[in-house]
Simulated scan of single mutants.
Amino acid sequence: MADVSVAQRIRQLIVSGELEPGARVAEATIAERLGVSRTPVRNVIPALAAEGLLEPVGRRGYAVRRFSIEDSFRATELRCVLEGQAARAIAARGPEPVLIEALRAVLDEGDAIIAKERLIRDEQEAYAAMNMRFHTLIVDAACDALLAELIHRVYSVPFVSPGVVASTGIPAEEIPAVLQAGQRQHHAIVDAIEAGQPDLAEMLMRGHSAPARRTLGLDGPRGEVREVAL
């Protein structure tokens, strides 16, 4: 089993509560539970800690971090406020053509992914990677070290980083529509930046947190754990 699939399954165990907050994450126990060797589990644990799902305990161990889905949503709102400042700064001074070219290339990649009627797990991961590149381009282009530091601090809250696949309670058939809505927002943000409209660019980026309530399972009953990137 690929490391990425092992990471996804551990995320699901954490969000579903099967791995309770404070529980130690033992490589051997998790590997046996997933039916894999200890190596892929060992490989993904540091990444899950970097995402904020795990926290160090003892000399070399990790435990499940205590957090709520509501915490993740509030942090996502804060992330989008901060990224809104980045988008405003770029639009206000006028974006470099090379930045717009890079953003459009990333958007083309995202468009190709969501054009498919059914998104399999690997394609959702590809969208998450594209999403991370999109947001990173904007944060880096703001050329504001303090702002970038604050944004990356918020990323440490579980499921807030744009490159993290967020486990949610939405039905699988709704995932393509959520990704399509997010992608439309991406296009609108780039259009505003390119047009030199700082107010609009900031507003659109701030509004990018709106789908998070649904994708994090805060609207309506939670069901089977699914994944989607914001």
Results as ranks from 00 to 15, higher is better:
Ser161Leu: 03
Gly110Thr: 02
Glu174Phe: 02
Ala181Ile: 06
Ala126Pro: 01
Asp122Ser: 14
Ala192Arg: 08
Val160Phe: 01
Arg153Trp: 07
Ala177Val: 04
Ala142Tyr: 02
Gly182Arg: 07
Met130Val: 03
Ile114Val: 15
Asp111Phe: 06
Ser161Asp: 15
Pro171Ile: 07
Val164Asp: 13
Ile193His: 12
Asp122Arg: 12
Val164Trp: 08
Ala126Phe: 00
Tyr127Cys: 06
Ala129Cys: 00
Cys143Leu: 09
Leu107Tyr: 03
Glu173Arg: 10
Gln180Ser: 15
Pro198Met: 13
Arg133Phe: 00
Ser156Met: 10
Gly196Arg: 12
Ala129Gln: 07
Asp122Lys: 13
His135Cys: 04
Leu150Pro: 00
Ala115His: 07
Ala142Gln: 07
Asp144Pro: 02
Val164Leu: 05
Asp122Ala: 13
Ala115Gln: 07
Ala166Pro: 01
Met132Thr: 03
Ala172Tyr: 03
Val160Gln: 01
Ile114Lys: 04
His135Ile: 03
Ala102Val: 03
His186Leu: 03
Ile189Val: 15
His187Pro: 02
Ala112Val: 06
Ala177Asn: 04
Ile193Thr: 12
Ser167Phe: 05
Gly169Gln: 01
Ala141Asn: 10
Ile100His: 01
Gly163Met: 05
Ala145Phe: 06
Asp111Tyr: 08
Asp191Glu: 15
Ser156Asn: 08
Ile113Trp: 02
Phe134Val: 03
Val157Cys: 12
His135Asp: 08
Glu194Lys: 10
Asp199Ile: 08
Ala128Gln: 06
Thr168Asn: 14
Ala195Cys: 04
Gln197Leu: 13
Arg118Tyr: 10
Leu137Thr: 13
Arg121Ser: 07
Ile189Leu: 11
Ala166Gly: 04
Arg104Ser: 09
Ala129Asp: 09
Ala115Ser: 13
Asp191Val: 08
Ile113Tyr: 03
Glu149Gln: 13
Thr136Gly: 04
Glu123Arg: 15
Ile193Arg: 13
Phe159Val: 07
Thr168Cys: 09
Ala166Val: 05
Leu103Trp: 03
Glu109Leu: 12
Ala102Ile: 01
Asp108Pro: 00
Glu109Met: 08
Ile151Gln: 04
Gly169Met: 03
Thr136Pro: 00
Glu123Pro: 00
Thr136Asp: 10
Leu107His: 07
Val165Gly: 05
Cys143Gly: 05
His186Asp: 05
Ile113Gly: 07
Asp144Thr: 05
Ala105Ile: 00
Tyr127Lys: 02
Asp122Trp: 02
Thr136Ser: 08
Ile170Lys: 12
Gly182Cys: 07
Leu146Thr: 12
Glu109Ile: 02
Leu179Tyr: 08
Thr168His: 08
Gln180Glu: 14
Val154Phe: 01
His152Arg: 15
Glu173Leu: 07
Met130Gly: 05
Ala129Arg: 13
Asp199Glu: 14
Val165Tyr: 02
Ala112Phe: 03
Gln124Tyr: 01
His135Tyr: 06
Arg118Ser: 12
His187Met: 04
Ile120Ser: 11
Val139Arg: 09
Gln180Met: 11
Pro158Asp: 11
Ser156His: 15
Ala177Lys: 13
Pro198Ala: 14
Gly196Thr: 12
